[in-house]
Design a binder for these strands. Structure first.
Lengths: 246, 246
DNA sequence: CGCTAATTTGACCTGGATCAACTACGGTGG
DNA sequence: CCACCGTAGTTGATCCAGGTCAAATTAGCG
């Protein structure tokens, strides 16, 4: 399984191989990274805004998010992360955190010392390229979220978010048949989209009424993929999921 | 001057040295990059959404922005760029553009072939680090813009944007004394912030009324820096302007 | 079964959007 | 030097998407 104790880094390999083909040597180098694995409860901070990071975090199982608080208890969620994601590779070059990273569900996370990551990137420029590329896709997703926040209606915005979260999971084999896990509350969706939680609820009701999706328990079922895409004006280009040579 | 024909890349050197100290050899390598310099009129696309990029763009003089269009003529501006900025280093690893890059004013831009950039990064891992870091700061700014769009009022949002644009220019010696150029229209501010142009106008009027700023011609004068920062809940950490060793 | 967190619904309110003029101003040509 | 024109800025009137507040209702979970 994903968090097999003998190959704890297999979700990372899966993720990297979904982006680029690794040579045997590269794969071996990644698998040999020193890690400290830890199981965390839901809604625990992993790294806090303002801290100096000395290691990167890798999600092995469960969901995490990056967020930042503003006065008055306002919270903006910047991204969601699933198994195989390294949510904070940026700390390699900018150790001072300008936001926080936290679990959303119970999660298994692995910590990799910066020193080991730096050494890996020096030995394998192509892995540097893949990691760098990953941070660039991250930024592309931020841009699309800005597009959603600035230009799309709340209905289209949430439709867009569902398309993205489904495809992200599908790309690493965690989803299929237009059905995936979505272990987050409506309040989380609200903080991610800049919509109030009450309005998120109403929009979801409307989408349900239109036969686009259902959302019960922690499962998102997309009943009308094409219609959802049309509603969201979704174009998956920005996710850059197509595989390439490392 | 910035676009001195004998050292066309000096704005880039200034920018890089504002981030990290370069060795003589590194500086020489950057200065030796092959470039094609071109003067462009205002509001011209430099690279378009959907294209495959084969070179990076460096702004030598003037302003540029990245943006993307949605149906119905909606435009979201993602970032503003000034002399010394490379707005599209991401195209090195993700050549397929998922947004456009355009001039805002008349601008002098230099084009650097990807091949030359790749070769530079292979020869100088520390320059790779600085460029990578630059893309990470880019992403940090995106996050802060999301925070503005999702959680701040339009008044606070624009105040925040002015703080950011002033500091960005100050960091590379293009501004001082709480005064800088801002050669963009209210409609541009609107598309960058997700506010309507009419409302931008009203907010500016209010800020003027409160004695925070004035904005005449292409000049932004911040009359009350501390008050502006307070209004914006501005914390410059996310710009990561502090210098460090390469 | 009971407790808590999450969802749902209704009623009401407001920040900011939209629509429609109107004004100011820099450039251009006569 | 002035008339004209196009772009950008300004203002008023009106509207509505989505926020806020408060009160159920429901779903999980120990």
């Amino acid at each position: 399984m994903a968090s097999n104790i003998h190959r704890p880094l297999s979700p990372l390999i899966t993720k990297l191989e979904s982006i680029a083909t690794l040579s045997t040597e590269e794969r071996h180098a990644v698998e040999s990274l020193p890690v400290r694995v830890q199981v965390m409860r839901a809604r625990q901070d992993i790294v806090c805004d303002g801290e100096m990071a000395s290691q990167c975090c890798l999600i092995l199982e469960g969901w995490a998010c990056r967020y930042k608080m503003l006065g008055e208890g306002k919270r903006q969620i910047f991204s969601f992360h699933i198994a195989g994601d390294i949510p904070d590779p940026h700390s390699l070059h900018i150790p001072l955190m300008d936001h926080s990273l936290a679990t959303m569900t119970q999660a298994t996370v692995a910590f990799i010392p910066h020193a080991a990551m730096h050494s890996l990137t020096l030995r394998f420029p192509s892995i540097t390229g893949v990691l760098w590329r990953d941070t660039l896709v991250d930024a592309a997703i931020f841009r699309e979220w800005m597009m959603c926040m600035g230009q799309r209606s709340s209905y289209n915005h949430l439709a867009h978010l569902f398309c993205e979260l489904y495809l992200k999971q599908e790309a690493v084999g965690l989803a299929g048949e237009h059905r995936c896990t979505l272990p987050i509350t409506q309040a989380d969706l609200a903080d991610a989209s800049g919509i109030s939680n009450v309005h998120v609820n109403r929009v979801l009701k409307e989408m349900r009424g239109n036969g686009l999706i259902t959302l019960h328990g922690n499962t998102l079922v997309i009943q009308a993929w094409e219609a959802l895409i049309r509603a969201a004006e979704f174009d998956e280009t920005y996710l850059h999921l197509r595989k390439r040579r490392a």
